[in-house]
Write a protein that binds this DNA or RNA. Structure first.
Lengths: 148, 148
DNA sequence: ATTACTGCAAAGGCTTTGCATTGTA
DNA sequence: TACAATGCAAAGCCTTTGCAGTAAT
């Protein structure tokens, strides 16, 4: 699913959803951001443009965008109590979170695709979604630990 | 971390934790079970032996066991609001959840180990934990869908 | 003019925590 | 005998929902 804000709005319209100012705003924030935002971060950013926007609307909009595959939910490190959101328009990649400094390392790999393929052949399953998050120590924090 | 209930109790004692009847019971349930239990399921099972056990104690014990690496937390499918627990004593494996029937397919693969190795070489990161959950349609449900 | 969407406030669901009591070491 | 652990109830935290008012088509 790789389309800009306009393409996403078209997709929403085709599903019978209305394009409200709030939805356009939220969509824009998620698609433009190169960070991983949670609902609250999106909310705060959106309020700069629309101070009356409610957190409920953020959640409701994100829910629709997720269902339509326009936005992906992500979890980082071991704490999955909070969801982060990322545009589906970005190329497929995975995340490694440093438990020491919190930095997120993004990486690409063909191995996950291969794994999906293998599982399909071996178990006959058909993937629709994969949640993958790694945690550990980043290069910097490992080096810092050795210095001490 | 591959040890029986006794080994786990020894590990707890060495960390200064007391072995209470409640902890022994919870530990036993998690290590004996071949299912994926959430806190409530462990609680209900434990109450059959100790009707006065509280849910708080289940959570508190699981928290300790997680911290010590004796138990792994798991998430299934896209809903990560609920945690499941699994003994760390079982061989490394991963999970695929069927979104149609809910069945969980467990599988092993050398690809994740390879991925860890690749990332270490390419990004200098050191893994401590990986959370991987796949979802989609199992072979049975795919076949059933074709029949209709 | 419909009726989907929003904002507000309240509720939900899982997990954590404060505190007096109990029980392990 | 200390003080860690428990049980109970209350609180926390993120997310969802009910409802009356608002706005997109």
């Amino acid at each position: 699913m790789n389309m800009g804000v306009k393409g996403a709005e078209k997709a929403l319209r085709e599903e019978g959803f209305r394009i409200t100012a709030q939805r356009a705003l939220i969509l824009d924030i998620v698609q433009q951001s190169d960070e991983h935002l949670d609902a609250e971060a999106i909310y705060f950013q959106a309020r700069r443009h629309d101070p009356k926007l409610s957190l409920s609307t953020v959640y409701r909009t994100l829910s629709i965008l997720k269902d339509m595959g326009l936005v992906e939910q992500r979890y980082f490190a071991r704490d999955h109590s909070r969801e982060y959101y990322e545009s589906s328009a970005v190329p497929e990649h995975y995340h490694f979170t440093c438990v020491s400094c919190g930095k997120i390392v993004e990486f690409e790999t063909p191995l996950i695709e291969q794994l999906k393929h293998d599982l399909m052949v071996e178990h006959g399953v058909r993937f629709s979604h994969a949640c993958i998050c790694f945690e550990g120590y980043c290069a910097q924090c490992r080096a810092d630990a050795l210095d001490r």
